[in-house]
Amino acid sequence: MTFDGHFEPRHAYPPLPRVADEGTVTEPPRSLDRFIIALAADDPSQLEAAWRGFVAEHTRLLLHVARSVFKTHDEVMDAYAYILEELRANDCRRLREFATDPRSRLSTWLVVVGRRLCLDFYRRRYGRDHGGTSRDQRAMRRRLQDLIVEDVEVHELPATRMVGADLLMRQMELRNALDRALEEVGVSDRLLLRLRFDDELSAQEIARLLGFSSAFHVYRRVNALLARLRRSLEAQGIESAVP
């Protein structure tokens, strides 16, 4: 049985059923399927109705995304309009691409695409990147180096403090030793440590993102990794984080 009627896609639009990479089957919600069918049918009134349905279903989510980037009501509404405009552009190219190979839930994909469009809109409007945490600020927060060496009592801090070039040299030595130790752990563990100590995600957020059963499992894995890194640093002759 083959499909041979007027429903033949006129613009090589994708077929409806989809299989994502390597066997993970996902299906977009009904609103998107109707939308894709309307695109294929090339009927403006049907397409308009499907678009309205799609917008109605996802407006709250898109506004939620816009509010995460913009603060004032006017900015949020402008960003929301920009997202819709871009999703509709080129015969809804982005939505058609998603429908061809859905690798996630539509809502998650809309969050990622919507946020990217909001940041793009911000750049267009203000001519610069959206202000977030700068790398310098983040570097100040980094605690991994401190956590993997033995605990240091404040009153035992060395009386002879290094200054200038010596201090920089020692810091560089510590950082290099830590990088070498990190290279010895697997990619997923390295990502776990980055998320926990560089990006400061909560254990619960990490559990959700990396597929741990609970925050408790994240803590346990982090502690095991810190102990391992500590041993690796000790083997390199590093026993204190204090420069």
């Binding site: 994502a20 691409e97 690798r103 996630s104 839930r105 998650t108």
Partner: peptide, 15 residues
Amino acid sequence: AAEMAGFIDHTLGDE
């Protein structure tokens, strides 16, 4: 965007 959303949803293939 597809890879990022799939990573968040745990729907990407292992590789």
